[in-house]
Write a protein that binds this DNA or RNA. Structure first.
Lengths: 230, 230
DNA sequence: GCAGCGCCTCAGGTCACGCTCAGCTGGCCC
DNA sequence: GGGCCAGCTGAGCGTGACCTGAGGCGCTGC
């Protein structure tokens, strides 16, 4: 049903392995992009929007788990298949917690990799239609149109407000610490003593509460959470 | 957030294995149906419409692959996780060809099975965002949402209360000394003569006992323990 | 240059929370 | 029974986390 070939991003610091995997997948009819560093992988995943990422855990710069977490935090739900020599349970737990769809330990057979890739894509093809509209309660955040509606009414947001709310809506019902918010929205490494985060929470609340009950709640000493009622 | 529990069908001809798997999954909050024959599995899958099927390949009457094919032929797209001792490539190929979503070879760890089950469900869209929920008796402590429920009712906790209860719930049925609690929650090196620990135990008891029988018990001169009954 | 807008800082006010304290209870031993 | 000690808990206090209105600064469009 899908005419254009599906793009797969393969990331590993070992060029020969990347080549072997890429060749196998190309032979199966996929379009493959290769990357050998974590940063390159992050950029490629964001810009090319591949249908699947085959991701080695051990990379020179950024940990594979870290890459997965960042992608998920940015609302990118592309399936991820981890590839690693570490096969302890803790490693697998960390991988799945980071949002993995499958986890394959080296050494593995290329045939099995291909089968698992197909299985994931088959499932992904049925399920997600990559709607760019995030929904929570009576909120609708259209990421592409950069537009927010609550109960049908359009609410104007500035760029920063939008970014903060998007982070909340990709993590509904979950308490987000100020440090997490600062990192995700402002890319602060360390949390200074700025209250910028509180300020934008305040802005958002003011706008959201005009059209309904409060949705962003403070969890004192912990962070904030998007949730209905309490 | 957490609607009705997701139903999982577990099929294996070895009752002890089915029990072990079912217990693990129930502990994680799933509703589990067990089957020990292929025909029973087919009927259960069609009638109960589970969110996922954990399926052994070797069954007395019907082959697991055969079951998968029949389900797919009937238009049932329920995700399937195969469980088998056969780990040759041909077996895996047959499994994936039959429509498997994952393939786990015995012996496997129950923890890994649970992780893979969660990964599949998350992808299928049924996921409860893999929120880490600690359970004990009728208590549910959602660490991500920073929320406590007892018998369904939400109980508000402050940050410190939450931290103390979390320590108890990660060590259920174990007596924890005041020194341990102080160290874990307050990061005190030495136990001073503060009664802060008792104070928070008191707070917790008051809140928990509003919704059920006492769960935190004093063990004189030793510490406290989270347990049902006496 | 000016107006408008958005991002961010600052500072004052409030109040929830963490913690202390002190009086009370209940079990245990003499 | 009386005294002692461990633990329980209600009251209260100080702190600092959080909220928000005001304003400065820089950018953009006219």
């Amino acid at each position: 049903m899908n005419q254009t070939p599906l793009r797969i991003l393969v990331v590993d610091d070992e060029p020969s392995l990347v080549d072997a995997v890429a060749t196998s997948l190309r032979y199966e009819g996929f379009e493959v992009t290769e990357a050998t560093t974590g940063r390159a992988a992050l950029v490629a995943a964001q810009e090319l929007d591949p249908a699947l990422v085959v991701l080695d855990v051990m990379l020179p710069d950024l940990d594979g788990f870290e890459i997965a977490k960042r992608l998920r935090a940015d609302g990118i739900t592309t399936p991820i298949l981890f590839l690693t020599a570490r096969d302890t349970l803790e490693d697998k737990a960390e991988g799945f917690a980071a949002g993995a769809d499958d986890y394959l330990t080296k050494p593995f057979s290329l045939a099995e990799l291909v089968m698992r890739v197909r299985a994931i894509l088959r499932r992904a093809g049925n399920a997600d239609n990559a709607s760019t509209v995030l929904r929570f309660a009576d909120l609708e955040l259209d990421v592409d149109a950069h537009e927010l509606r609550r109960a049908g009414a359009v609410i104007e947001l500035t760029a920063t407000e939008f970014s903060v709310l998007k982070y909340f809506m990709t993590n509904p019902g979950r308490v987000l610490s100020k440090a997490q918010i600062l990192e995700n929205v402002w890319h602060y490494d360390f949390d200074g003593d700025s209250n910028i985060c509180e300020t934008y929470i305040s802005y958002l609340r003011k706008k959201l509460n005009e059209h309904g009950a409060p949705l962003i709640h403070t969890v004192r000493l912990v962070g904030y959470v998007l949730r209905e009622q309490t």
